[in-house]
Design a protein around this nucleic acid. Structure first.
Lengths: 274, 274
DNA sequence: TTGCTCCTCACGTCACGTGAGGTGGC
DNA sequence: TTGCTCCTCACGTCACGTGAGGTGGC
């Protein structure tokens, strides 16, 4: 910790600092000070005409302090310059910046959640596997949509089911799933969205048990069609017979939107008995 | 939403895609595909010798899907390439990445909190102002340190006081403050750190009321000495007489570390009466 | 012939870090 | 003379976006 620039009586203030001394007070590198100058953000008090040495005074220290203060909000240097010079309203700049910062944080948290999930999968990208899904109680909603609007329709249905479960049945859905044809084609398609609950209610129905070739999917929803391709390749390699539908299971809507996609499989007779 | 690459029977897989078709399936731009190629991350299945046209097959689609999956964790492309090619362990890479991501999120949240605080100050950087601080109950700890270790000593003392308040008195400190000489010099310095509590206890003492020229400080602690310079300049301009000590008031340790720094002022006799 | 896709450079982004190569004061 | 500070370029970072300028197939 360097001592304050002025002493306790407030009578002595520095008149001239070299760029090195100046940078040390501001806790930045000499290169940073020169960089700010290049942007027109922080000019030296004077420059020696003979050797080009810069010198700084207390006005520049104050300006440097303001820059440091604004930089700690994450504002970019151009905006900081505009604010300090009065060409831009600080409040407006901060308001816009806050919105962007919140978006950035949300994205970073999504990335972190995705990372945790891959770590939980313990080494290696998650591989498709045959899973037996037991029968479950669910509130089911059937509707019709198009391939283009598939994602939006599913999201809207999930919201409606979740609200209905809370408001009308006083219960919460453990997770949600959607079922639609594997081959979307170009016409209207029939989909079923289900909110899975713990026990039966007067409004719930039962999703029958089935076997799926299933794989967890982390990451952007936009790539889901390609993930199905991966799954279908695996189906073919294992010589399995798909039933022609796709199932998406949304395990955790709040955090990373953990999703598992699966292709229900038609099992041979003896496998069904076991 | 594009239909899956393979149809429901799993018998048809694409043999040859142009770069445009390929990019659309992956939901990235053509430029991105070329960029990945430049990094050696994703090579086309073949290149037409006559016109340089690239073509892609299902192997490349799968590789593109893996890249997309890993990219959604925020890993950089070089690391992704190393992981996919088996030159680097995925788990180790993700573990390191998680640590860095957590650090980044913490910093972003700090920036956001700083932004909120400047917004709360409503337009304009916070200005120094004379404030009357009432007497308060506090657990006080006096110790000796050096200018270099000032920050560390204060932080350690705060932790000790907070723990003592919780464990021995069963109470929580509302906030903390530190007091030390304005002129730090180079020798040992005496400091007092206080944990401010709501009511008196057998262990607490009373911090007397005083008047300070005070300013909120947001941003890195490293710049605090310079902030004092700003304050002292203001003291001089207003013709006030500092008592020779500096006071830092830590309002919110959890979030952005909101701090207020002040210089206790010796008031003239008539001002004291009012 | 007009669009559309494809090709290869190559600059710009953002806040500096990091040499390269050289000079001036203690 | 040896360190230390100072100076001016100028490249590199990271994942692409964005023209510039040109060609090939429907």
């Amino acid at each position: 910790v360097l001592p304050p620039v002025a002493d306790a009586s407030g009578s002595v203030r520095p008149v001239s600092l070299t760029i090195g001394e100046f940078a040390r007070r501001l806790r930045v590198t000499v290169r940073t000070v020169r960089h700010y100058e290049q942007l027109g953000l922080l000019r030296p008090k004077s420059v020696d005409a003979r050797n080009g040495y810069r010198s700084y005074g207390s006005d520049e220290l104050l300006r440097g302090l303001q820059i440091a203060q604004l930089k700690s909000t994450g504002l970019d240097l151009a905006t900081i310059g505009a604010v300090i010079d009065g060409r831009l309203d600080l409040e407006a700049a901060l308001r816009g910046h806050r919105r962007r910062a919140e978006t950035v944080i949300a994205r970073k948290r999504f990335e972190l959640a995705t990372t945790e999930m891959l770590l939980a999968a313990r080494g290696g990208l998650p591989a498709p596997a045959l899973v037996d899904v037991p029968a479950e109680h669910a509130v089911v909603m059937r509707t019709s949509t198009t391939a283009d609007a598939l994602g939006r329709t599913i999201r809207r249905s999930i919201q409606q089911i979740g609200r209905a479960a809370r408001c009308e049945h006083g219960t919460r859905c453990r997770s949600f799933s959607a079922r639609f044809p594997l081959d979307l084609g170009s016409g209207p398609i029939e989909i079923a969205v289900a909110g899975i609950i713990d026990g039966p209610t007067s409004w719930s129905s039962v999703l029958p048990a089935e076997t799926r070739l299933s794989v967890p999917w982390v990451g952007p929803v936009g790539q889901l069609p390609l993930a199905y391709d991966l799954l279908l390749g695996e189906v073919r390699e294992q010589g399995l017979r798909p039933l022609g539908t796709a199932v998406e299971h949304y395990l955790d809507l709040a955090e990373a939107g953990r999703t598992e996609i699966g292709i229900p499989i038609q099992l041979p007779a003896r496998a069904r008995i076991t």
